[in-house]
Amino acid sequence: MKIVVLVKQVPDTYEDRKIDLSSGLLDRDASDIVPDEINERALESALRYKDGQKATEIVVLTMGPDSATKTLRKMLSMGADSAIHIVDDALAASDMVQTARVLAAAIQRGGFDLVLAGNESTDGRGGVVPAMVAEILGLPLLPSLDALELEAGSVSGTCSIDGGSLSVRAPLPAVVSVTERSAEARFPNFKGIMMAKRKPVETMDRASLDLGTAAVAASVVGSATKRPARAAGTKIIDDGTAAQELAGFLASNRLI
């Protein structure tokens, strides 16, 4: 079984994240950049399968700036076997279609049984890159699984939808995206960190992928504005009358 895990590095959600108001794009210098938690969970799902099936090969794939090597190293130290890093200034500020085309072209070069992704990234939050990749590759997608069951020949799981959930199954090869309810990621151990240094990281640019030259549609950002920060209001310490005071506040604001 060969599993390709799509990983993205994102601004740390524990800090204030910023948009550059002149370009409408992410300000990457404003916050720490970390592997997206959702992609660590996707990798964990692959690693759990590999724990039982040693012959499994796990490749992590990212499209991102030079600094994304840090994310790939972390993934390798968790247990992935090799990494592919697509890095090219011409790909900066790619939209989702462009991202998916690049990722699909790289996936196609190496062969695979399963592509694992996060259901949505914590920065772009578009949530459609996995579907676009599946469409380009002509494959089924099992979207937003809380857990996945991988067998020879097929993959299955449950996805939550409005009003309930669905049990779904697809033949391999397939694309699967996982939610934040899926496998909690392991921490890299010392041995993993040492071994990661010797694992192969292949870098490639746009030209080494077969993408064609025809113009494609793109989503473009027109403007960005910042909402004024919220100011804190009244804070009282409960001395037995706080509930009454709050009820008064709600009444005077016509909220009760």
């Binding site: 279609v97 998916a100 259901n119 579907a131 676009m132 599946a134 380009i136 494609v216």
Partner: peptide
């Protein structure tokens, strides 16, 4: 709708028809 069921359709439709997606 940006729901689990339907956004897959949006992504695939963009590739299929040569469009792009403005998300969420």
């Amino acid at each position: 709708s940006n729901s689990t069921e339907s956004r897959e359709v949006a992504g695939r439709l963009a590739i299929r028809t040569g469009g792009a997606v403005a998300a969420d």
